[in-house]
Amino acid sequence: MNWKTGWSVAALGLALGSGALAQDYSGKTLVVGTWGGDIERLLREHAAGPLEELTGAKVEFLLGGSGDRMAKMYAEKSNPTMDVTFQNVYEAPQALSDGLVVAPDESSAIYGDLWPGMNDGCYAMSLVGLGIAYNKGMVTEPVEWADMWKPEYRGMIAMAPYPSSEGDGLLGVAARLVGSDEHDPDAAFAKVSELGAPALNYTSLDEVFALMDAGEVAMAPMISGYVLAALKEWDNIGFAFPTDPGPVLVRDMVCQVANSPNPELAQMFIELALSPATQQAYAEELLFGPTNSKAELSHDAAADTINTPEEVASLLQLDWPYVISQRADWTERWNKDVLGQ
């Protein structure tokens, strides 16, 4: 057991009290749905490993996109096989309102440790912001949202496929640039469609950075975290958090699936995922801002992540439940107005 794992086990032991620990979960398998790669690795190291050691249960990861997990939850509503799932903020409130996940427990100790106002449908796992990645040779700093609409960059903006947090965030920003907000989709779509069809609908960071490096793409609204970590390999690509309006707050959420086979284990896993140890690892290695106010970050990680209440306050918060309710209409509208289909 390394020191980090030991710390996690001790923390969980304290949090749960000796009663829960006395129970033996050998033979049980907790199913956790999450993204593959670094996220899976960190969760395995800081949450699954300690939980297996502590309870004798096995943790099985189900890897894929968050949309696949939403689909799975709806398909298995009456008989769920997944216990814990990681979702985007644009999915979690919908999952709660459709009764697929358990609402965060406001009386729990871990709830009190998280920044206030961040739990939305599920527990907030990490904080990131939608900013702008840009080619340093083509775009003058400081970079603001309005720069994307300059005529010289027409047809040179890359976007994430819609529906996505990035797309919703861009709509929220565009509406504010014309003095409105996301509740006015006419204004938002009119402004975004002024950008013209995107130069690229990016599905991977390498794809967009290679084109940005080659000068085919000038700017792209992107979410900090992974992007900042990956950017360290590209000298001429920068990332800016604009100020007018500020970056859009985006969160990854961790949810307990309703009526899942292993609710106690699910709760224990979630507590470990939200523990300072996991949150610090997320911040140090992936530059995902912690939601646990007790997480302590190195100077470098603190500089690149959203990790203080003041920073959170500077971010643009969208009315996610409203945005989610518009998903079907806005997808059609995005295809028509933005992609010109």
Binding site: M70, P163, A328, T331
Partner: peptide
């Protein structure tokens, strides 16, 4: 098409997998 050209198959996939409107 990089998600920029909508054909009937890509529209169906978008509705099923991204919008999660299975009936449609």
């Amino acid at each position: 098409g990089q998600g920029k050209i909508a054909t009937f198959a890509t529209m169906t996939w978008q509705q099923a997998s991204l919008v999660l409107d299975w009936p449609f």
